[in-house]
Simulated scan of single mutants.
Amino acid sequence: MSHGFKSKKSAHVAALFAILSGGKINILKLAKLMYLAERESMDRYDEPMFYDDLFSLKHGPITQQSLDGVNGKSDGDVWTLVQRTHYDVCVSDDSISEDCLDELSKADTDIIHDLWTRFGHMKQYDLRDWTHRNCTEWERPDETVRKKPISYKRVFEALGKSDAECLASEAEQYKNIETALDELYSIQDGEPSHPLWPQ
C-alpha cells in the first residue's frame, strides 16, 4: 500500500540527481538529497514533493519508500529509470535526460537544481553530517531502535512554520484520500494514476 506516496515522481527525482551527478551517484548521498528535496518542498510550498514516509536513522534522515524503490524492494515497474550497483545508483540508460522526467514540475526541478548547487560538491559523509547538524527534526536512534519515524509536523516545526500542525494535518489528509483512491481503483495488473489529483 503506497499510502499516498508518489512513487513515480520520487523515481524521477532520484533519476535527476543521478543525471546531475554524471549518471551515477552514491546511495548515501542520494538518500540525503531525496530527504532534503522533500524537506525543501515543505519549506517553500507547505507540502511534501512526493509524500514519503520519513525516518531518523544512524546516518541521518531518510525517505523510506524512495529508498525501498532504489533498492528494488517496491514498485519495480516504476523504478526502471535507475538501478543500484553496490554503493551507487545509476541511470539505467544513457539516453535518459531531464526532458524525459515528466513527473517533475518546474517548481520541483528548481528545488532539485538548487539543492545540487548547494550540496552537489559534498561527499556523502559530509552531507550526512550536514543533515545531523541542520535538520533538527532528526534524532539519533538509540541501540534498541534502528530507526525513528519523523512526522510531518516535526519537520514543519523545524522549518519554523507557525501553522505546523495544520500543514501536517493537510498533508496526512491528502495521503489518506490517495490511499482510499488506490483501494477504489486498484486492479489486478497495476494501479492507474488518478486524474482527480495533481501529480
Results as ranks from 00 to 15, higher is better:
residue 73 K to D: 01
residue 134 N to Y: 05
residue 38 E to V: 10
residue 16 L to Q: 06
residue 107 A to Y: 02
residue 138 W to A: 04
residue 167 L to C: 04
residue 162 S to N: 10
residue 105 S to H: 01
residue 136 T to V: 11
residue 19 I to P: 01
residue 190 G to F: 08
residue 138 W to V: 09
residue 34 M to F: 07
residue 128 R to E: 13
residue 30 L to T: 04
residue 22 G to H: 03
residue 118 R to I: 14
residue 66 S to R: 12
residue 18 A to S: 13
residue 30 L to W: 03
residue 172 E to Y: 13
residue 102 D to I: 15
residue 48 P to H: 13
residue 153 K to W: 00
residue 66 S to E: 14
residue 116 W to N: 07
residue 133 R to T: 11
residue 147 K to N: 11
residue 168 A to K: 11
residue 138 W to P: 04
residue 113 H to V: 05
residue 116 W to Y: 08
residue 52 D to R: 06
residue 139 E to C: 04
residue 196 L to F: 04
residue 159 L to H: 06
residue 89 V to E: 06
residue 65 Q to G: 08
residue 178 E to V: 14
residue 169 S to M: 09
residue 103 E to R: 02
residue 73 K to P: 00
residue 70 V to Q: 01
residue 85 T to I: 13
residue 43 D to Q: 07
residue 80 T to S: 03
residue 45 Y to C: 07
residue 142 D to A: 12
residue 18 A to L: 06
residue 141 P to Q: 13
residue 193 S to D: 09
residue 68 D to A: 14
residue 186 S to A: 15
residue 29 K to L: 03
residue 152 Y to N: 07
residue 104 L to C: 06
residue 35 Y to L: 00
residue 123 K to P: 05
residue 85 T to C: 07
residue 141 P to V: 15
residue 51 Y to F: 13
residue 59 H to K: 15
residue 138 W to T: 09
residue 137 E to W: 12
residue 62 I to C: 10
residue 52 D to T: 10
residue 43 D to W: 03
residue 47 E to I: 12
residue 116 W to S: 04
residue 123 K to E: 12
residue 70 V to T: 08
residue 94 D to W: 01
residue 183 E to F: 02
residue 30 L to V: 04
residue 127 L to E: 11
residue 137 E to T: 09
residue 37 A to P: 00
residue 180 A to H: 10
residue 103 E to W: 00
residue 1 M to Q: 02
residue 29 K to M: 03
residue 163 D to E: 14
residue 12 H to R: 06
residue 115 L to I: 11
residue 75 D to L: 03
residue 167 L to E: 03
residue 102 D to T: 15
residue 152 Y to K: 05
residue 145 V to I: 15
residue 181 L to T: 15
residue 114 D to N: 02
residue 105 S to V: 02
residue 124 Q to Y: 10
residue 78 V to P: 00
residue 36 L to Y: 07
residue 142 D to L: 13
residue 5 F to K: 06
residue 126 D to I: 11
residue 161 K to R: 14
residue 65 Q to W: 10
residue 90 C to W: 01
residue 82 V to Q: 04
residue 155 V to H: 01
residue 164 A to V: 07
residue 154 R to N: 05
residue 182 D to S: 13
residue 10 S to A: 13
residue 187 I to M: 10
residue 1 M to V: 11
